[in-house]
Each structure stands twice: as C-alpha cells, then as structure tokens.
Design a protein around this nucleic acid. Sequence first.
DNA 1: CCGTATCCGATCCGATACTG
DNA 2: CAGTATCGGATCGGATACGG
Lengths: 121, 121
Amino acid sequence: MKIREQFTCPLEMTHDIVKGKWKTIILYSLKDGRLSLSELQKKIEGITQKMLLEQLRELREYGLVEKETTEGYPLHVEYFLGDKRGKMLIEAIKILQLVGVDYMVEHGMTEILDKKGIRYK
Amino acid sequence: MKIREQFTCPLEMTHDIVKGKWKTIILYSLKDGRLSLSELQKKIEGITQKMLLEQLRELREYGLVEKETTEGYPLHVEYFLGDKRGKMLIEAIKILQLVGVDYMVEHGMTEILDKKGIRYK
DNA sequence: CCGTATCCGATCCGATACTG
DNA sequence: CAGTATCGGATCGGATACGG
C-alpha cells in the first residue's frame, strides 16, 4: 500500500487505516503490550503470515505501530503500539469492540463470546 | 451486501460496518441531526448518489441508521442515527476524526482543514 | 523464527443510464 | 426529489512457495 498524500477530509484519512480486514484486530491485540510476530499470529485467529506482515508494515508507515529488533540469535522482534495516534486509536477500537459485542449479544451470537471469554453484561 | 451471520470476533463484525469507504463519513454527517438524501450528498464531498443509497441501505440493515418518509408531495425522506449502536459508533468515529486531524496537522495538510473550518488548536 | 513475491478469485466503487 | 441496475477497472486478501 502506498500512503496517500491527499485527503478530502480527516475521516477519509483514518479510513485508510481501518479499512483493512485485520488492522483494527491487530491494534487491539497490541493494546496490552508488546508481542512478537508469532505471538500475534497465535492470538489472531485465521490471519496468514503474509497478511499480518503486510498490515503491520502499513501500520508502521502510519506510525501506529512500532517495531524493535533485539540483536542476537535467534532474532527476536517485538511489535507495539505507537505512542500518540496508536493510543488514540485504541480508544476508538475499544468502542468498536463494544459495538460488535452488543450486536452479537442481540443476535444470539454469544457462543463465540463465551468461547473467547469476552464479557457481556 | 449480505449481512454476515458468523464472526470469529466482535471486531470482525464491526469491521463489516466501517470497512466501506463512505460509512464512517455518512454516520459522522448524521451526528447532529436528520438529513435528507440530497442534503447528505451536498455535505459529503465526492460521493455519488448510488454509493450514498447503497451505504445507507447497509447501515439501515445493521440498525445504525434509520429512515422516515413523510407522505405528501414532493416526497421527503429523512435519515438519522439509530438509537443505540448508532450513537455508540459516533463516539468511536469522533475519535477517528481526531486521529485523522492529528495526522493531517502533523503532515502539513492543514489547508483542507482550514477550508472545511475544522478546528485544530 | 522473520520476511518477501506471485498468482488469482472476490469485492469494492465510480460512471452512467434509467424509473417513479 | 428518491431510488435501482449494469458494467468494468482497481483493489483486497487468501494460498503458496521461497529466502534470510
């Protein structure tokens, strides 16, 4: 993905961030601290390594995620939320999560919530 | 669009809502009250009537937007935010807006903000 | 373990023409 | 004014194979 350089409104800009199928989920997965690539992949059901890396790169280009590599062997890489907008976005994503939970409860999809240990009411 | 019936996590569900290029912008445009189709189209720069109607229909299927038609001539239709999740989502979208503004300020894109009268300190 | 490249079907979205 | 139908290019994302 190429970072755009023109937007007609701020939401169009943010949309570039959240439109991808995985970006909000990745950010949400990083809300409690640093994770390596493989930890992220374990945490995010169904994502392929290709998509994970691709989305992480784009999130880094926007400064929403940062990455730190500790030298040595084996190579260890950690991903974590970027300071400013990364943490702003998390607040929005937490609400998106609540909206999703609310919808799922109202439509009888509580099985998945139970399975994942997500609280609702 | 067909409403999905299975999700592996709540964010995947919400993503179905916000992935479209226009949905957050439409919701944000409705945050202060009711608007007719043509008012919406005037407010949202660059959207075609087809996209606007299509996205409005999908938002209504999710209960995020409601519609009221007043009989008489000419036909007048008003769109407005759905009560519960519609208003939750607005809170998230307001943050998305702030993130977008922040990004644009930091990247020297203030011209558009000025043109639209968007405050950024 | 981390990261890149390619192929290909599915979907998105803009243009456009048409109806009540 | 409100709403529908169709077509086609662009983009997205999954599978898969390969390299550091």
